[in-house]
């Protein structure tokens, strides 16, 4: 027996007490509770929604603490799953072809003049590469519907990975700036770096960007099925 709109509304409001921040786990717990209440109704339990709700939550989840524990284990499992997926993506791109790319980049860098203009151009290139994950994530973003006050764990994770390279790049520049200006370590000026240093950074940034795109495609393929 389906619940009435008022009963569903009551259940949703009552579930807000549990303070489940993430939409994914909220949906799963809510569906379980509502299905449990519907089954109880089908079994002849016509008591007030509040009483049936508490019976289902207490019997099924062991009350508030049980739900809290499920949320905690879900977050832990999610992080573990994403760590594995991340590792698999890096492993996929640290291969013979990208090693050849590194060799090519190093050889190319060998012929580049070590001056300020080269340094600036190469630094600009790094900035562009670090923007790739962010741009890719925005262009291909998948709409994940979330209720007011809820977040998608998946979306949060993916966008944090998308910004990571840009944040790393900004932090690197900032650190160099501080060391050069405040501590007088002028030899750290990017203009003095041999092109090979940039080439290694290019290689790492490219591998990160490719890994991110692979992770993004796989994650959203699974999420949108």
């Amino acid at each position: 027996m389906k619940l009435t709109a008022e009963e569903l509304d009551w259940v949703k409001k009552r579930m807000d007490w549990y303070d489940i921040k993430f939409q994914e786990i909220y949906d799963e717990v809510a569906d379980h509770i509502i299905t449990g209440i519907e089954a109880a109704r089908n079994g002849g339990d016509q008591r007030d929604i509040e009483k049936v709700f508490h019976t289902v939550v207490d019997n099924s989840f062991g009350g508030y603490l049980g739900i809290d524990r499920i949320v905690e284990t879900y977050q832990k499992a999610f992080r573990q799953r994403m760590r594995r997926a991340n590792y698999a993506s890096y492993k996929f791109y640290f291969n013979r072809q990208t090693t050849l790319l590194l060799i090519f980049l190093l050889a190319f860098g060998f012929y580049l003049p070590a001056n300020k203009i080269t340094g600036m151009v190469l630094m600009g290139g790094l900035l562009l590469i670090s923007l790739v994950p962010v741009v890719y994530a925005f262009i291909n973003r998948v709409k994940i519907k979330t209720d007011k006050g809820k977040y998608s764990m998946l979306k949060n994770y993916i966008f944090s990975r998308a910004y990571l390279l840009l944040i790393f790049f900004a932090a690197l520049l900032n650190s160099i700036n501080i060391l050069v200006k405040d501590f007088g370590l002028t030899f750290l000026k990017p203009a003095f770096y041999p092109a090979a240093v940039y080439m290694v950074l290019y290689y790492l940034f490219i591998v990160y960007g490719l890994s991110f795109i692979r992770l993004y495609k796989q994650t959203y393929k699974v999420a949108s099925q």
Binding site: F61, G66, Y74, F78
Partner: peptide, 23 residues
């Protein structure tokens, strides 16, 4: 089978790559 035991087990199996989900 209590839900307090079921869901952590399901999430663990998913994290281990043995299960996949769809909504």
């Amino acid at each position: 089978l209590t839900e307090g035991a079921l869901y952590p087990a399901l999430h663990k199996l998913e994290a281990d790559g043995l299960l996949e989900t769809s909504t």
